[in-house]
């Protein structure tokens, strides 16, 4: 395996009853880079993330993280691998019976031996970084959707993960708030240097963040290209996606001449 690949999915298949969602999916994620997963709804994007996180088992195939098949290792080893993960869930998945402060403090309390004073400093630092102010004692139900995402991001980043997963980080947010999330993403990735895997519908904006673009179509990954290559690709499926989501403006020069 190539040393640069931190995550690799090999011929992953997943069926629910007679319905096959993933049909022999192959995917690789390069260490330290940002891979963006795009594709229509119901193509198994979030499902694939769940496979990488070890929350679901494939019907067939292998999911390799750090060269280890995460379905063939012990619970302890899986826990070790997961200690490198940070996840921003689609619905933020904050603990709704805990305050914002306790939500962000939780990973520090459970996974480190930091004192309460150190935890307080770290939590406040991260909430400040996310520009969440004056909400420490509020509960998730009392804050806005955008704020929830930022708190979720603070919670995911507080242990300085090596791999970050973003499941539709800007869905349901207005343009200003989406830009805010992207800005935070830029800032934290520059600071922490994590590998990022982003599932997003926010095309073409998301391409500005991407080092690699993976298009999910009909249960497989169509290609793993840089955003420029992706937009200029001749593959019919990719062309169709680019034209539907971005319009003719982004069509290849070849077509424009014709």
């Amino acid at each position: 395996m190539d040393d640069n690949y931190i995550i690799k999915l090999v011929n992953v298949e997943k069926s629910f009853g007679s319905q096959k969602i993933l049909k022999g999916l192959n995917l690789s994620v390069v260490e330290g880079k940002t891979s963006v997963i795009v594709g229509g709804s119901g193509q198994g994007k979030s499902l694939t993330i769940k496979h990488i996180l070890g929350l679901m088992k494939p019907t067939n195939g292998q999911v390799l993280v750090y060269d280890k098949d995460i379905n063939g290792i012990s619970k302890k080893e899986l826990k070790e691998i997961r200690s490198n993960f940070g996840v921003l869930f689609q619905n933020s998945a904050l603990f709704d019976s805990m305050t914002i402060y306790d939500n962000v403090a939780l990973p520090l309390r459970e996974r480190t031996k930091m004192s309460e004073a150190e935890i307080k400093d770290t939590v406040n630092e991260y909430l400040e970084l996310m520009e969440v102010r004056g909400a420490n004692d509020k509960y998730p139900a009392q804050i806005s959707g955008g704020m929830k995402k930022r708190v979720g991001l603070a919670r995911a980043l507080v242990l300085k993960p090596k791999i970050m997963f973003f499941d539709e980080p800007t869905t349901g947010l207005d343009v200003a708030m989406s830009n805010e999330i992207y800005r935070i993403f830029f800032r934290t990735q520059a600071k922490l240097g994590y590998t990022a895997i982003i599932v997003s519908h926010d095309v073409p904006k998301i391409f500005k963040l991407a080092d690699y673009v993976l298009l999910f179509h009909d249960g497989i990954v169509e290609d793993n290209l840089t955003p420029e290559e992706f937009q200029l690709s001749d593959k019919p499926v990719i062309r169709k996606f680019v034209e539907t989501t971005m319009g003719r403006l982004y069509s290849s020069e070849m077509e424009d001449i014709q």
Partner: peptide
């Protein structure tokens, strides 16, 4: 009901992903 809601709103998944049992 409490645990069921935690499961449905992905809070249990979130715990697992944070390597918290």
């Amino acid at each position: 009901a409490e645990i069921g809601i935690m499961r449905n709103s992905e809070q249990i998944d979130a715990l697992e992903c944070m390597a918290i049992d």
